[in-house]
Nucleic acid binder design. Structure first.
Lengths: 213, 213
DNA sequence: GTCATCATGTAAGCCGTTACATGATTGC
DNA sequence: GCAATCATGTAACGGCTTACATGATGAC
C-alpha cells in the first residue's frame, strides 16, 4: 500500500520524504495518515530494492519546483543544502531527494496490474493508472467491476437468507451499501466505455482519426 | 474493532467462537476477514477483563439454537459436549460458549459512544446501535454527519487549490468521492430525522420547550 | 534565545494475519 | 482408514502508529 503510493507519487517527479508524505496523504484522501514512521522505512526498503534512488534535486525537471509552499523553510533548506550537501555526503540532516529508477517504474506497473485490490487500494491504483498501459488499465477496471458485482449478488442473497429479520438500522445500512455498489458499477461502466473510446483495444489506429487527448 | 464486533454480536445471544466468527464476518461485510488468530485471543482478553464469560449453552435462550447450519457437525459437537462436557471441565476440545456480562454490555455502550470512527467502524456501530440509548445513537449520527461534511468541504477546497490540474482518472475519482459523500450526508439526515420522530430528544416531554441544538 | 516549521530517522508497541498444531466426529 | 468439517488455540511475522531523538533555519 505505502509502496504503491510512494512509487506512484515519485512517478510524477523527484521528491524528498517530507514533501512526499504530503502528496501521499492527498492521494489517499482524508483518513489515511501514512506517518513518517512508515514512510521513511518504506523509502529505505525501496532504495535497498533498487526501485528508488537518491538523486540531485533538479530545478529544471518536469515538476519544476517541488517546494513545500512555505517560502522561509524552503529557502532555509535550500541554503543548507547548498552549504552542506554539494554532493550527497550522507549523514547530514538535510533533504534527501528520491527519484524512481527504471526498475521502480516497472514495479509500479506490476503493482497496478496484480489483482486483489480492496476499496482503498483500487482508489490508489485508479489515481495512478494513467502511468500504465491501456490493457492493464482496462483489466483493472473490469476486475473491479466483477468484484463489485459479485459482492452485490452475495450481499443480496445473504439478505434474502436472513429473511428480512434485520432491525431498521441494519436494513438502512444494507440498502445504502447496495445503492453505493450499484452506482459504483455504473461508474465503472462509464470508465470502461471511455477507455474503449480512447483506446479501442486496437493499438494501431491506422485508418481512424486522431487519438484526441 | 474486533472487540466492538464481538461484544455486539454476543449482545444478541450466547455463542461459541467458531459461530461467532461467522456472525462477525457477515456483520463486517465482505472483505473483512477476522481470522481465528485474532478472534480467540480477543475472546480470551475479553474474558480476562470480565466483559464476557463462559456460559452453559442454553437451548431455551432468546436465540434458541445458535446452530451452525450443518446438521452433521452440529450433532457431532452436541454429542461430544453431552459426553465430555457435562459442566465446563476446561481443557477438553469442545465448544466453549460465551455470553456477555453486564460489564460487557456497559463496555459495548461505551465503545459505540466514544468518538473517532472511520468508515468501517461507523458501519459496525450503526449495525449495533440498536442496543444503546437514543441519545448516544443520535450523537453518533450527528458526529458522523459533521465528519463527512468536513471531509467534503476539505476535499472541495483542496480540489480548488490544485486548479483542476488532474488527469481524468483522478477527476473521476474525485467526483465519485464527492457524490458518495453527499449522498451519505443525505442518508444520515434521513436517519437523524427518523430518530427524532421516534425519540424527540426530550425524554420527558412535559414542560420543556424546544431544545433547538 | 526561543519558538515554529522543515526534515530525517529510530524504538516500542498494537493489531491483525498466515501458518501451524491439535483433536473430535461424520460420511464415504 | 481417510477426507471434510467443526472447533480451539499458539507462534511467527508484518505493517503501521505513536512517541521519541536529532538537528537546521527563520521569525519574533
Amino acid at each position: 500500500m505505502v509502496e504503491l503510493a510512494v512509487l506512484g507519487v515519485l512517478r510524477e517527479g523527484d521528491l524528498h520524504g517530507y514533501e512526499l508524505r504530503k502528496r501521499v496523504r492527498e492521494l489517499l484522501g482524508p483518513g489515511s495518515s501514512v506517518s513518517f514512521g512508515s514512510l521513511y522505512p518504506a523509502l529505505a526498503r525501496l532504495e535497498r530494492q533498487g526501485l528508488v534512488r537518491e538523486v540531485e534535486p533538479d530545478e529544471s525537471g518536469p515538476v519544476p519546483i517541488p517546494m513545500t509552499g512555505s517560502l522561509s523553510g524552503e529557502l532555509a533548506a535550500f541554503r543548507a543544502r547548498a552549504r552542506r550537501r554539494p554532493r550527497t555526503p550522507r549523514g547530514a540532516r538535510t533533504r534527501k531527494v528520491f527519484g524512481l529508477t527504471s526498475a521502480g517504474e516497472a514495479r509500479l506497473g506490476e503493482l497496478v496490474a496484480e489483482p486483489g485490490e480492496d476499496d482503498r487500494t483500487f482508489a490508489v491504483k485508479l489515481a495512478l493508472c494513467r502511468w500504465c498501459d491501456p490493457a492493464t488499465r482496462l483489466a483493472l477496471f473490469e476486475r473491479r467491476r466483477a468484484a463489485l458485482a459479485g459482492q452485490l449478488a452475495a450481499a443480496r442473497s445473504s439478505a434474502a437468507g436472513t429473511g428480512g429479520a434485520l432491525d431498521r438500522y441494519r436494513r438502512s445500512l444494507f440498502e445504502r451499501e447496495a445503492d453505493v455498489t450499484e452506482r459504483d458499477i455504473a461508474w465503472l461502466d462509464g470508465l470502461i466505455a471511455a477507455e474503449q473510446v480512447t483506446d479501442p483495444r486496437t493499438p494501431e489506429p491506422s485508418t481512424t482519426g486522431g487519438p484526441s487527448s
